[in-house]
Each structure stands twice: as structure tokens, then as C-alpha cells.
Design a protein around this nucleic acid. Structure first.
Length: 936
RNA sequence: GGGCGCAUAGCUCAGCGGUAGAGCACUCGCCUUACAAGCGAGGGGUCGCAGGUUCGAAACCUGCUGCGCCCACCA
């Protein structure tokens, strides 16, 4: 009573029938026995389909893995830990293609470590994303004609939780589709009770250490979101504005100031000039008239003013400009607030109630009417800050906020990278990190929002301020009230590497899995998130000592996903990609491979549908390689015979696989995902499929092989099985689904997810796979064979001969040797069925290589051949010239490494031989057309 | 305004001191009994420009040009 796909599965195993393969694993036999009905239904119908269909496989496999508990880490394990915490996606929406990239890379790292025998934990979770989520839900409410104030704080928060349940569920579903091997038993959310405890604990510690303080400051304010923003939540862009010069004062007491924000003049409380500026020395200390207001304001001298810029005089608006605020402090000026939290003028008078952008032209007009405008420059490009969430122009605003005193924390965060306790990949990116960490302003952490961690501060009726820890009782009684603000969402994300493991409690998870191993994320949140985790991790976990307090040992940064033209993806551009769409149409593996394949360290990834199709084709290639292996009775689990009993192609492919395995290991350690993909892709496709399988065919089918003996065939079946077995394991971290489907079918093993990695294993893991023998001799032999075959094919193609048509060739030197050893294989590769004839070793063995002889009697094209030979000759001559020039230089011979000189000598000899051979062949060619007689 | 990075085949990119590479696209020939989502062969690049260092430069240095990105309180 099973469904179709399962049948295909068992059928696969049936293919490894004992009579074909000789031996087969017990599991495969069991499977065979389970469903004898299918076995008898005939081999033709029970073969693997010719194409891989990911859809059904992926969901079935994923659920199977979760049920089997493969992704669950064990805090009591003896094995060395490997931990990655997910960069928690915002609950605001769904995962985009950038997440898919991030998850693909993380998953590949985690899966490899798991196979290597590490106690691997990938901890999943999500971020409550304070302002972003609140905005989304508020927008939703707005569609119902409601505002959050209509609901009230408690009901609104309830509503956000509801929203989180839906949206969060969607995200988790997407992660399953991607194949993320996360430990679902450890899923976290930044607003969980446990994490809230961590937030409160952290706040209290910082507060008690004097690292959190409350102060009246000019902060970035979003008049739309109605909250403070931190510096990094402000995005600057060069916007068109106007630079207006206004005359303040009258007669000899006049001074001209320039501003881009005319309307703020209503709040001016001084004019500042440079102390050494002779032009205005006489005015310093005097009061002049401020237009439109009837107020008189002082002229002060402040070194901040640049006498070179504009008129050298600055209007000072302490309540609405951070610089001016500082000047105001230095000169004890009053701060006059002329705007409310929505950016509406509250200064009274004719401008009362105007929005800041309406007030600007209105004030300008009024000034002009009084003849106060000296000059106007427009358009005037200058940097303007915008809210990173909604794009609204940020308004500097004087208000009472909570801040983290960053300096001591940032110093430690910088040092951890400087002295190598945390390594950033690629290293060049650490420069950016230092730029920021070494020059960080205090961090404004209070937000005037409802969705988030409430600031754990209570104010008493008599001005008392009490910080309430998670285990403290909040002060009760008349007049006590909790601060109404919430914390910046990055406050809780900064705790993520340890709050998720149980901190502040000393849990087994925290002991086992902290510090985490690698942090994988896009360079775009290096400042937002990575730096904050460094700040907080080093502080909170300081009792572990400097080495183990770090939140992660390595930071692997990747880039942004871009479209096929390298353009940034954006909704307005309409070039965004939904990862689910690609997964539906091409499969999760193809989607993952496409992303991984472009992932150079720190580099952006350009993708398009064509590339995904290419990756899908690769999956299909693997599928068919296994199909081939099945049909030919590949054997796994037996290892391979000693080299002396193997054919050259067998030894060659094993040797190559050994090299590839080592290469892949080294590349993974450097987070060179693109190269890992490249190496595996070319090994699997070019070397294994295009050459090895073709070479194995005659052995396996017993045709065309000298002696065609069964022992050799069995040895090759073992090699075929062994190579595919290991290859699938190597690719599994990148293509988890196909490899699982194929590996279990091929080997009868339980799951490749928990199969042992073919390369390096964790310290203490004793059951690694034995290393494969390197065999340089076999590699040389087979590459000679490849050259020979390629040369003949090229000739055939040049001459327009049909495949399989006899080629009149003479083999010299190595060519002859290769042919003598591999004639059967070569005949198969060249589709030459008849033995002997025009294709045989020649008696003339004057040099290495192949000589193809034109037989005009059968109508071969002399002109084409002459063209080819001439071209090759020119290339060879150019080569000689270049190398000779090099070798003629005494300084080259003296100074270049001996190896390089030797290589060049070899190259020269080879090129000279080539020229001789080509010259001879050219001379031997009949005149064009002349020899083609009527007898052809 | 400051800092960083990039300019290599039609497109996207790798190579970063010793014979110019990949994928896709393109041309030609093939339904070869694993795969036409395939097989075989091929064309295509004075490595942005100008100097310099070196026996040797796509790679190192300088300048220029053209693009990105990050940071930023110059009114």
C-alpha cells in the first residue's frame, strides 16, 4: 500500500540485483524482498525515470529528516560543537532571495560539519523587528480605517502577535522548502519569554555599570513613525534643496547667514561666527534683530564655524540641529522648540500649524517681503537624512532618550578583531568594521513604539528611577509608572548568539554551543547586527575570558543578490525574484546551487532564470549518472581493490577524486563557496560523466576490452559505486535533496545527511572514510588518452566526417602507447566499431602525438586540413618565439625559479617538435583539389 | 566632504607576477543503448586609458577616465 514514488525507490534498489552486482548491502536486499510484486513487474518499468523531478522528493525528504531527528544537536555530546545561529529574519514578511543565499551557505557549512562528525547546531528563529513590524501592522489597520491608538497599546500588541503567527509560519515553511537543516527544537523569537529575560538582564547590567543613561539630546526623529532612530537607521541621500542667504539685524548691526532650512530660523537663538574672523569681531557679544519674530538674539563666537563657508556666519537653532545644539550648550543659549513631533510648526504667529515643508516657502516669502533675502541658490544639492523604514525626511529633534555609552564596548569589539579572536572573511571587509566600531556615537536605544521590549525602568512619584531586572518585583503603588518606550530592535538582536542558548542562565546549551563558530550574513548588516553582537557578547560573556567571550570565531560575509545584469533587485525595478517560485519550477537544489555558485567571499551574486536552469541540469546530470550506475550494477560499500587490480581509468578517477576531495575541504574552510561548486561541477560533469563513464562502458559491458573479463568488470563496478558514493556525499551540503535521493538509492544507506564526510573529519571522529590513492601515472596516461581522442574528434569535425566514420590516423610515441593500452576504450569513445582498418598504431614512432593522414581518395578536404595545420603552426611558432625570447634573457635564467625555467624549456622543446611535425604534414599535403580524383 | 572597491569573451564573473579561464549565449555536426535539461567540435578577449617597476605585468606602483558601495552634523 505505497504510492508511486516510493515504488520507484524500491525499484532503484532492485536494480542492484545480486546476480548483476555480485554483492549488495543487506538493506538493499531487504528492500527487494519487501516488494516482490514490483520486482517481478519487469525491469523496464522499474528503472529510474530519465529526468529528476524535485517537487515530491523535496517535501518527503525534508519531513523525513526532521522526523529522524538528524538536525537535532545534543548538548551532552562528546563530539566537538559547531554552532551557527541564524540571522533571524524579520517577521515582517517572507524570505527573499537574499535570505535564500544566506541560508544556502549556512546550510552547506552546517551539513558538512555534521557529516564530519561535529555536534552541529543551526539554531533557527526570527526577529520581532520592532519598527518594521509595527509599520506593517499599522498599515494593515489603516486599511480598516483604524490607528493603533484606536486599539490601545495592549490590543495593538495582541494584534501584532497575531500577525506574527501568520507571517512567521510562512517563513518557517519557506525554510523547510529550502532544505535548511535547522534544529527546530531550539527555535527562538526575540520576544520569547526567555529572550525577554536576557534583554532585561542586559539592560540592568549595563545600567548599573553606568553604560546606559538617559539624556536630553538631539536625536534623529521620524515625524511619520513618530519615534527616535539610531544613526544607522538614517539613510542619507543628496537631495535638491536651496541655499538661502538671509540678512539678520539692521544697519551696522547686520549679518548675513546662509541656510538650507529657512523655517528653522523661527527657533534661532543666536548667530555664530568664528572667533578669529575679523569681519564680525565687532558684533560678537552684541544682540541683533531676528527677522519676523521681533526677538533679539546674540552673536557668539564659536570655533565650530568655518569662516570659509558661505558668509562665515551661522544661524543657531539649538532645538533643531545637532551642531547648533552643541553650540547652544557651549554658550548657554536657550533651546526654542518650534515644531512638534509631526513636524508641524508650533512657534505661533502666521506659521502656526503649518507642516515643516509648507512652512519653508511661507517663511521665505515673508522674509522676501521684508527684503531680507540677499541671495538664493537653487537647486542646491545637499545630504538629507531619511528614515530607513519609511523614507520620510528625518527631523533632528530635541528629546529625552535612553542611550548606550558605546565607547568602552566598541573598543573591546574592535580589539577582538584586531587581535584575531574573531576573523572576518573576506579580510578586506574588516576595514569597514573598524571604521565604524572605532568611531561610534552613543547609541540611542529608546523607541517611541509599542511593539518591542519595554524599557525596564520605573519612575516613582517623587522622581525615583528604578531599573527592574527579570527577577525583581516592579515597584507598585501610587504614582509609579513604567517607561512607555520600547528598545531598539537591535538591542535584542545583539544578544542573539547567547540569549538563544539560555543566557542569562548557565544552561547546558550555553556551555556547549557558545561561542558560536561562524556568523554568516550579508555585508550590509555588518554595522547593524554584527558589530552589536560583538559589543554585547564581549560584555555579557566576559567572565569566560577574552578568547571565549566572543560571540563567534569567524564572520563569513556574502554579498547581495543581483539580477542578471548585475543590477540591485528592487520592487520598483521589478526585477525581484521569489525563491519559492524558483523552487517550485526548478527545485530547491537548483536554486541553492545557483546562489552558492556565485557566492565569492563578500561578493554580490548575479542570478537569472537561465542560471537556475543550468543548475537544474546539473542535478539531472547527477541523477542520470546514478541511473547509469544502477543499470550497470555499481557496487558500493565494498571499497575498491588494490591499484594493481584496477584499470587505468579506475585509478585515474580515484586519484582525481582524492585531489578534488582535498580541494573541496580547503575551499570550504575559506568560505569559497563559488569555487567549491566549480570544482565539484567540473569533476562530476566533465571528468566523471563525460570521460570516466564513457571509459567504463566497455569494461562494464564486456565489449571492446582486451580479455573482457568479469573480474575487471566487477572491480570497475566497485570503483563506479565508490566514486559516486563519495561524490554524492561531497555535493550533499550544496544539493541536499537530489543527493539524498540518489545516495540512498545507490548505497541502500539510511541517509547521506548523517553519512560520513569523505574528507577531513572532526577531531575525535574515528569513522572517516579511508583516503583514496593518488596516482600520477594513471593521471598522465588518461590525459594522454584524452588528448588523443580529442585530436581525432577535432579532425573529424574539421573534415565534416560523420561520427563513427573511420579515421586514417597514425599514432606516434605516446599516442601509440596509449592506443596499445586502450584500443578498446578508444574505439568506443570514437565510435569505431570495426577493428583494424585505417586506425592502427603506426610503425613510425618519431615523436609524441597523433598524426592524422589525409586520404583524398575518400574525399577528405585538403583545404580544411591545410587551414587547421597552418593555424596550429602559427600558434606553435608564436609560442617558440615567446619562449625563446624569455630563455635568451640571462636575467630570466638567473632569477626566475628553476621550476619556471624548466617548464619553459620543456615548452620550447614541445613547441619545436610540434613545428617540425606540422611542417612535415603540411608538406605532405597534396595541392588543394588536385588529388581528389574521380575515383573518390 | 571622507573612505573602500570595481573596470578581463556578447552577458555575469573567476584569475591577482610566469603559456588568457568558467557558466550562459553563439556557430557547426550528432536522437552514440544514463541524460537532447544531452553528446562532440569550434569561434570570440591588444585583460578601461597613459606612464612606471620587473628578465617577465591582466596581476605590483602612479596618474587619468568611467562606474559601484559605505561613512558623513558643514550651515
Amino acid at each position: 500500500g505505497t504510492d508511486g514514488p516510493d515504488r520507484v525507490f524500491r525499484a532503484l534498489r532492485v536494480q542492484i540485483a545480486p546476480d548483476r552486482a555480485g554483492l549488495v548491502s543487506g538493506r538493499a536486499l531487504e528492500s527487494t524482498a519487501l516488494d516482490s510484486a514490483d520486482v517481478t513487474s519487469g525491469t523496464d518499468t522499474t528503472q529510474l525515470p530519465a529526468q529528476y523531478s524535485p517537487g515530491e522528493v523535496e517535501t518527503r525528504r525534508y519531513e523525513g529528516w526532521v522526523e529522524a531527528g538528524y538536525f537535532r544537536a545534543d548538548a551532552d555530546s562528546e563530539a566537538p560543537p559547531f554552532t551557527i545561529v541564524i540571522p533571524p529574519p524579520n517577521v515582517t514578511g517572507s524570505l527573499h532571495i537574499g535570505h535564500a543565499l544566506d541560508h544556502t551557505l549556512i546550510d552547506a557549512l552546517v551539513r558538512r560539519r555534521r557529516m564530519q562528525g561535529y555536534n552541529a547546531l543551526w539554531l533557527p528563529g526570527m526577529d520581532h523587528a520592532g519598527i518594521a513590524t509595527q509599520n506593517v501592522v499599522e498599515r494593515e489597520l489603516a486599511r480598516e480605517g483604524l490607528s493603533r491608538h484606536d486599539l490601545g497599546r495592549a490590543a495593538f500588541i495582541e494584534r501584532v502577535w497575531q500577525w506574527k503567527a501568520e507571517s512567521g509560519g510562512k517563513i518557517l515553511g519557506q525554510m523547510r522548502r529550502l532544505g535548511d537543516s535547522v534544529d527546530w527544537s531550539r527555535e527562538r523569537f526575540t520576544m520569547d519569554a526567555g529572550l525577554s529575560r536576557a534583554v532585561q538582564t542586559m539592560f540592568k547590567r549595563l545600567y548599573e555599570d553606568g553604560l546606559i543613561y538617559r539624556a536630553q539630546r538631539i536625536i534623529n526623529w521620524c515625524p511619520r513613525c513618530l519615534t527616535a532612530l539610531s544613526d544607522i537607521e538614517v539613510e542619507h541621500s543628496d537631495d535638491e534643496g536651496e541655499l538661502v542667504s538671509i540678512r539678520y539685524g539692521e544697519g551696522s548691526d547686520q549679518i548675513v547667514v546662509a541656510t538650507t532650512r529657512v523655517e528653522t530660523m523661527l527657533g534661532d537663538t543666536a548667530v555664530a561666527v568664528h572667533p578669529d574672523d575679523p569681519r564680525y569681531a565687532h558684533l560678537v557679544g552684541r544682540e541683533i534683530e531676528l527677522p519676523l519674530t521681533g526677538r533679539r538674539i546674540p552673536v557668539v563666537a564659536d570655533p565650530h564655524v568655518d569662516p570659509e563657508f558661505g558668509t562665515g556666519a551661522v544661524k543657531v537653532t539649538p532645538a533643531h540641529d545637532p551642531d547648533d545644539f552643541e553650540i547652544g550648550r557651549r554658550h548657554d543659549l536657550p533651546s526654542l522648540v518650534i515644531m512638534d513631533e509631526r513636524g508641524v510648526i508650533t512657534a505661533g504667529g502666521p506659521f502656526q500649524g503649518l507642516d515643516r515643508f509648507e512652512a519653508r516657502p511661507a517663511v521665505l516669502a515673508a522674509l522676501r517681503a521684508e527684503g531680507r533675502i540677499v541671495a538664493e541658490r537653487r537647486p542646491y544639492l545637499h545630504a538629507v537624512g531619511h528614515c530607513s523604514r519609511c523614507g520620510t525626511t528625518v527631523e533632528p529633534r530635541l528629546s529625552l532618550q535612553w542611550f548606550v555609552k558605546v565607547e568602552p564596548l566598541a573598543k573591546a569589539a574592535g580589539d577582538a578583531v584586531r587581535d584575531g579572536r574573531v576573523r572576518i572573511y573576506p579580510q578586506e571587509m574588516s576595514a569597514r568594521y573598524f571604521d565604524w566600531v572605532d568611531d561610534m556615537h552613543d547609541w540611542c536605544i529608546s523607541r517611541q513604539l509599542w511593539w518591542g521590549h519595554r524599557i525596564p525602568i520605573w519612575y516613582g512619584p517623587d522622581g525615583e528611577v528604578v531599573c527592574v531586572g527579570p527577577d525583581d518585583e516592579p515597584p507598585l503603588g501610587e504614582g509609579w509608572e513604567q517607561d512607555s518606550d520600547v528598545l531598539d530592535t537591535w538591542f535584542s538582536s545583539g544578544l542573539w548568539p547567547f540569549s538563544t542558548l539560555g543566557w542569562p542562565d548557565d544552561t547546558p546549551d550555553l556551555r556547549s554551543f557558545y561561542p558560536t563558530s561562524v556568523l554568516v550574513t550579508g555585508y550590509d548588516i555588518l554595522f547593524f547586527w554584527v558589530a552589536r553582537m560583538m559589543l554585547f557578547g564581549l560584555y555579557a560573556m566576559a567572565d569566560r575570558g577574552p578568547d571565549d567571550a566572543v560571540p563567534f570565531r569567524q564572520v563569513a560575509l556574502h554579498g547581495l543578490v543581483r539580477d542578471q545584469f548585475g543590477k540591485k533587485m528592487s520592487k520598483t525595478r521589478g526585477n525581484t525574484v521569489d525563491p519559492l517560485d524558483w523552487i517550485d519550477r526548478f527545485g530547491a537544489d537548483a536554486t541553492r546551487f545557483t546562489l552558492a555558485r556565485g557566492a565569492t567571499p563578500g561578493g554580490d551574486v548575479a542570478v537569472s532564470e537561465d542560471w537556475v536552469a543550468g543548475s537544474r541540469n546539473f542535478c539531472n546530470k547527477l541523477w542520470n549518472a546514478v541511473r547509469f550506475a544502477q543499470l550497470n550494477g555499481a557496487v558500493t560499500g565494498q571499497g575498491v581493490r588494490p591499484s594493481s587490480q584496477l584499470t587505468a581509468p579506475d585509478r585515474w578517477i580515484l586519484s582525481r577524486l582524492a585531489a578534488v576531495t582535498a580541494e573541496v575541504d580547503a575551499l570550504f574552510e575559506q568560505f569559497e563557496f563559488a569555487k567549491v561548486c566549480d570544482v565539484l561541477y567540473h569533476f562530476a560533469w566533465d571528468e566523471f560523466c563525460d570521460w570516466y563513464l564513457e571509459l567504463a562502458k566497455p569494461v562494464l559491458t564486456g565489449t571492446g576490452v582486451t580479455g573482457s573479463d568479469e573480474a575487471a568488470a566487477h572491480a570497475t563496478r566497485q570503483v563506479l559505486g565508490e566514486v559516486l558514493d563519495r561524490l554524492l556525499r561531497l555535493i550533499h551540503p550544496l544539493l541536499p535533496f537530489v543527493t539524498e535521493e540518489l545516495w540512498t538509492a545507490l548505497t541502500g544507506g539510511e541517509s547521506v545527511v548523517v553519512a560520513r564526510w569523505p574528507g577531513q573529519t572532526a577531531d575525535g571522529a574515528t569513522d572517516g572514510l579511508p583516503p583514496l590513492p593518488a596516482d600520477p601515472a594513471a593521471e598522465a596516461e588518461i590525459s594522454a588518452l584524452m588528448r588523443l581522442v580529442t585530436e581525432v574528434r577535432r579532425f573529424r569535425s574539421d573534415q565534416g566526417l560523420r561520427p563513427g566514420q573511420q579515421v586514417p590516423a597514425r599514432l606516434d610515441g605516446l599516442g601509440a602507447t596509449v592506443l596499445a593500452q586502450h584500443e578498446g576504450r578508444i574505439r568506443t569513445l570514437l565510435r569505431l566499431s570495426e577493428p583494424g582498418a585505417d586506425f592502427s598504431p603506426s610503425a613510425s614512432l618519431h615523436a609524441e602525438g597523433v598524426t592524422i593522414e589525409l586520404d583524398t581518395a575518400v574525399g577528405l578536404d585538403v583545404a580544411a586540413e591545410r587551414k587547421r595545420l597552418t593555424k596550429d603552426l602559427a600558434a606553435a611558432r608564436a609560442d617558440i618565439e615567446a619562449v625563446e625570447r624569455k630563455l635568451a634573457s640571462p636575467s630570466f635564467v638567473e632569477r626566475a625559479p628553476a621550476q619556471v625555467v624548466g617548464k619553459n624549456r620543456d615548452r620550447l622543446a614541445a613547441a619545436q617538435a610540434e613545428v617540425a611535425r606540422l611542417t612535415e604534414r603540411l608538406a605532405a599535403l597534396p595541392a588543394d583539389g588536385a588529388a581528389v580524383s574521380g575515383t573518390a
